[in-house]
Amino acid sequence: MCNDPDVAPEIPDNQLLVSRRDAMIASVAVVAASHFAASARAQTGPRQAALPVSVDQALIIRTSINGQTLEIRIDARTSLLDLLRERLALTGAKKGCDHGQCGACTVHIDGRRVASCLTLAGKVDGREVLTIEGLAGGDTLHPMQQAFIDHDALQCGYCTPGQIMAAVACVAEGNATSRERIREYMSGNICRCGAYVGIVAAIEDAAAKMGRG
């Protein structure tokens, strides 16, 4: 099944590889680009516009995103969510409220789930970020992703990346030990379509397969 085949223009791999010198000019560098490039390629390259802020209102952060090291110059105002989506074309995390009220932007920082919309991008300097794009091992889905398919734990799919990232953390935290606990600890992720029944079932299922919870 394939849909939306022509949303993203195909661009060559090498467009993603920016040298250190270019990085100073273009504000972004992708180091060791193998997996990161592969996941980003399907969309487009990092955006390379010059930043319209003064030197002291910008900063260079070095971070790891989905296992790949990245050094990038950012406007200090930028949220982690906008960095991922608009600069790095990692659009799996979604903007549903931009105020920490819906959970659609959930990603992991150093293994813990956070709302990327309320996280200043500057805060991930020196830390590891995991997004939905980095969850599966290549073509092998994470058990939580498979469980979401099996239990139809989604409809429109907009909240789904955030739900899955939250759910994986929920199991890892040990908060998936009962339906009641799953419901409480998944309440930071609003699903407006109303797929909660499937979401709870998927997490119970995946928790058993993940060996936790």
Partner: peptide, 19 residues
């Protein structure tokens, strides 16, 4: 659901995902 795979991988393209 036929588009579930793209959705659980974060690959389904919503309008704002166009970069």
């Amino acid at each position: 659901r036929v588009d579930a795979l793209a959705k659980v991988r974060g690959e389904a393209k919503f309008a704002a995902d166009l970069v």
